[in-house]
Design a protein around this nucleic acid. Structure first.
Length: 513
RNA sequence: GGCCCCAUCGUCUAGUGGUUAGGACAUCAGGUUUUCAUCCUGAAAACCGGGGUUCGAUUCCCCGUGGGGCUGCCA
């Protein structure tokens, strides 16, 4: 592959909470597009809403991206011990709150050009105005009251320090954009563009409101900041959620009014992630942050594979893709338009698949690192043995100790008749349990350590004794060890419980008969 | 309300102007197994509705319906 420094994509979340799974998918799409062309993936922080900032979210976003394996090439790459943001790259700062002067500069440029104006309207007036407009069935839009102000009036108000914003003056008559979708109506202005996902899109300028560019606290709005930053950071391709589709017209107008038309990126609007009811996936649907999935013990490979296939697929019947595969196979032309429902059952299948793919050693290491093996009643050896048994049964690492209480706690009383397989007599049960006891007693101690090979050895030994009548030997043994109709195999039980405990339980069962 | 986007099994999706509409998850049944899980085999399961265009529409067009988004000094 040839190095292409032209391709740069960015993920630009606002640090207002933990990274949402939908955000991760958006990041993934940008990342894959960049990597496919051997380009750079940039992380920028859009922290222009000072009221909604959440302290730890920057670290969470970076941690989540790292966990998923999406390497940040440029921009915000970390948070140091003092909580300071660490940046990398020539085109920074990559945190919008550090770029206020830049936005001010361009806003002033627009004012000087006559493409933006100061507005001193109070929120009360704006609310009232919108209410009236709604009542009359009109689209709520700023009435350009402050545009009528003379230069002198503006000057004196600014001098007095009156609270103000800067608004973009949408040129309602002019056409903007790529002209890929053309309206027959030549009397009004339209803005059009060719969306990488949706194809030609067309918006009427007369329905676009005079967007606030600079807020009264001096911070830019998203609309100004995103255009300025994508220009200055030289981003030629933008993939973002479809909630941005209607605002894209505003952005295109800004790109042109600022004189950057030839540098304008191509936009691709991704379908949304929905819950099983078809509504936007939100916190109310339970745990939807990447951190939540991590905490439950989902593997990043599973999450990535699953969400990559939500709204994209290679047009073949293949299902399993590593991040590397995705980097090679990704094709923006294969992105879907329709929203995709998030189905935990399907995720669980992927997750179970990837857990089973793990080498035992790696599997145990991850479990240990994430403290999933901690259990008051268990030492590491025993916990590890249980974990190995559970490997093919669980869909998330947090479930290692699910449904195997009988291996951890003392057995509750159980019905004696559970011990018989089919129509076994008490005598037969007794004989088989006795036989099992003798064999287990003779098993070498070394076969009880947490190496999976030992389980194979124990299985071999017990199976040999069982001979032809496996059921009659194994069923009573298994029930004696578990007290359950359904459980893991007797071999696994013996291995986990150890010699002493196994014999103890068999004795207890024998006493029942 | 206005503007915009979307629409194939329950879910994620493939696909085509003429196909037995394919795959995966989930479900159900059978097999393997001492039971559970794994694994294997199989079954059931979809083109939102109405008009066009056409010899023929799931596919192309229009309308409707349904769902979603935007309509903030939030992003």
């Amino acid at each position: 592959m040839t190095r292409n420094t032209q391709i740069r994509t960015r993920f630009a979340p606002s640090p207002t909470g933990f990274l949402h799974i939908g955000g991760l998918r958006s990041a993934l799409t940008n990342y894959l597009f960049a990597k496919k062309y051997d380009g750079q993936f940039i992380l920028r922080l859009e922290d222009t809403d000072q009221e909604r900032l959440v302290k730890d979210s920057v670290k969470d976003i970076i941690d989540s991206l790292n966990w998923a394996g999406l390497k940040i090439d440029e921009g915000v790459i970390g948070v140091d011990e003092k909580g300071e943001i660490v940046e990398k790259g020539e085109k920074g700062p990559y945190v919008q709150s550090k770029r206020l002067k830049i936005y001010q500069k361009y806003a002033k440029q627009l004012v000087n050009q006559g493409d933006a104006y100061y507005c001193f309207c109070s929120s009360e007036r704006l609310n009232e105005m919108r209410k009236q407009q709604q009542k009359q069935g009109e689209a709520p839009m700023y009435d350009r009251e402050c545009y009528k102000l003379s230069d002198e009036q503006v000057k004196t108000r600014l001098k007095r320090g009156q609270k103000h914003v800067i608004r973009l003056k949408i040129p309602r008559e002019r056409d903007f954009g790529a002209k890929v979708a053309v309206s027959e109506n030549k009397n009004e202005g339209f803005t059009s563009f060719d969306d990488m996902v949706r194809g030609p899109c067309l918006f009427q300028n007369k329905l676009i409101d005079d967007q606030v560019l600079i807020k009264s606290d001096g911070f830019p709005t998203y609309h100004l900041a995103v255009v300025v930053d994508d220009y200055e950071m030289e981003i030629p391709h933008v993939f973002r959620g479809e909630e941005w589709l209607p605002s894209t017209a505003k952005h295109i107008i800004l790109w042109e009014l600022l004189g950057w038309k030839d540098k304008m990126p191509k936009f691709g609007h991704l379908p949304q992630l929905l819950n099983l009811n078809g509504k936007k996936l939100s916190k109310r649907d339970g745990d939807v942050s990447v951190r939540d999935f991590y905490k439950k013990g989902y593997l990043p490979e599973a999450i990535l594979n699953y969400i990559a296939l939500l709204g994209w697929n290679p047009k073949t019947t293949e299902e399993i893709f590593s991040l590397k595969d995705l980097e090679e196979r990704f094709d923006e032309k294969k992105l879907n338009k329709a929203g995709a429902r998030f189905d935990y059952k399907r995720l669980d299948w992927f997750s179970n698949y990837y857990i089973k793919q793990l080498e035992d050693k790696e599997y145990l290491k991850i479990l240990k690192n994430q403290n999933f093996l901690e259990n008051l009643k268990l030492d590491y050896e025993k916990a590890a043995k249980i974990a190995l048994i559970q490997k093919e049964r669980i869909s998330k690492l947090g479930d290692v100790f699910l449904d195997i209480d009988y291996l951890i706690y003392d057995l509750e009383k159980f019905e004696k008749n559970l011990l018989g397989w089919k129509k076994m007599t008490d005598d037969e049960i007794k004989q088989n349990l006795q036989k099992a006891k003798e064999v287990i007693e003779k098993i070498d101690k070394k076969y009880f350590s947490s190496d999976r090979k030992n389980l194979e050895k124990i299985t071999e030994i017990l199976l040999e004794v069982a001979g032809e009548n496996r059921g009659e030997f194994l069923w009573p043994l298994r029930v004696a060890l578990t007290g359950k109709k359904q459980s893991v195999s007797p071999f696994e039980c013996v291995w986990v419980l150890g010699k002493e405990k196994s014999i103890q339980r068999i004795n207890k069962a024998l006493a029942l008969i």
